Simulated assay, not measured.
Amino acid sequence: MLVVDDDEDLRRTVTMVLAEEGYRVLEAANGAEALSRLHDGPLPDLILLDLMMPVMNGEQFRRAQRADPEIAEVPVVVMTAAGSRAVEPMASLGLTRVLHKPVGLEPLLSAVDEVASGNERNGRAK
């Protein structure tokens, strides 16, 4: 699992919750850092991606990810405070799901469990 969000408190909270559920979780503060983590391997089962970040935003990250055959197939769930109009242009980028912030615990875990279980690379540590 890779959590990509520039909000450090949110990123760490999501990481802690997922780790408590048994997932191995990496963090990145922006899209550029996330690309670096993906290339350092191993590939995660899922990327939880914020849209609005400095350095490289979510849309720029997703375009770069899809252009790279080594990492293109890792599913992406967007977590965003942006409204639906901000997410609509990204529909063509193959997002698995969109969660609107603030994301509740149940919707987060449901999305993660569903997507990660269908794409098991290194999901749960247990």
Rank of each mutant, 00 (worst) to 15 (best):
E73G: 09
L93A: 03
K101F: 10
L48R: 02
M79V: 03
D68T: 12
P102M: 13
H100F: 06
M52H: 00
L38I: 02
Q60G: 01
P89S: 00
V103W: 03
P42G: 04
V74G: 06
E88L: 09
A91R: 13
N30R: 14
E70C: 10
D45W: 07
N30A: 13
T80K: 12
A29V: 06
A29L: 07
E73L: 03
R37G: 12
S36A: 13
P69A: 05
A29K: 11
G94T: 00
H100P: 01
E88K: 09
I47V: 15
D45H: 01
E88A: 09
V78M: 00
V98Y: 08
E27G: 12
A28N: 13
E33G: 11
L51H: 06
A28H: 11
A67E: 02
E73D: 11
R97P: 04
I47N: 08
K101N: 06
G83L: 09
N30F: 14
R85D: 15
E27P: 10
L46M: 10
A72S: 12
E73V: 13
A64V: 05
L35D: 09
V74P: 11
S84H: 02
N30T: 07
G94H: 12
N57Y: 06
L38V: 08
L99I: 06
P42R: 01
P75Q: 15
A64K: 05
L38R: 04
L95M: 07
D50K: 13
V78H: 03
L49H: 02
D50L: 12
A91Q: 10
E70Q: 15
H39P: 02
L105P: 09
R85C: 05
L99G: 06
V74M: 14
K101M: 08
P107T: 10
P42Y: 12
M53F: 06
M56E: 04
L49A: 03
E59D: 15
R62N: 13
L26K: 12
L93V: 02
L49W: 07
G83D: 11
T80M: 07
A28F: 14
K101R: 13
E88D: 10
T96F: 01
L93I: 01
A82E: 12
E59C: 03
A86M: 02
R63I: 03
E59N: 04
L26W: 10
H100L: 01
A86E: 11
R97F: 10
P89K: 00
A67K: 00
A81R: 00
V98F: 02
P44C: 11
N30D: 15
V55T: 11
S92I: 02
V103K: 15
L43S: 01
R62K: 11
L49R: 09
D50A: 07
L105C: 10
V74C: 09
G83C: 00
L108P: 05
A81S: 07
A64R: 13
K101W: 06
L95E: 15
A32R: 15
L43P: 01
E59K: 13
P89Q: 00
G31F: 04
T80V: 07
K101A: 05
V87L: 14
M52G: 03
P69D: 06
R63Y: 00
V77I: 07
I71D: 09
T96P: 01
G31H: 12
V77C: 08
R62M: 10
L99H: 05
M53V: 05
V87N: 10
E59V: 12
G94M: 09
G31M: 15
L51P: 00
D68R: 13
E59L: 08
L95N: 04
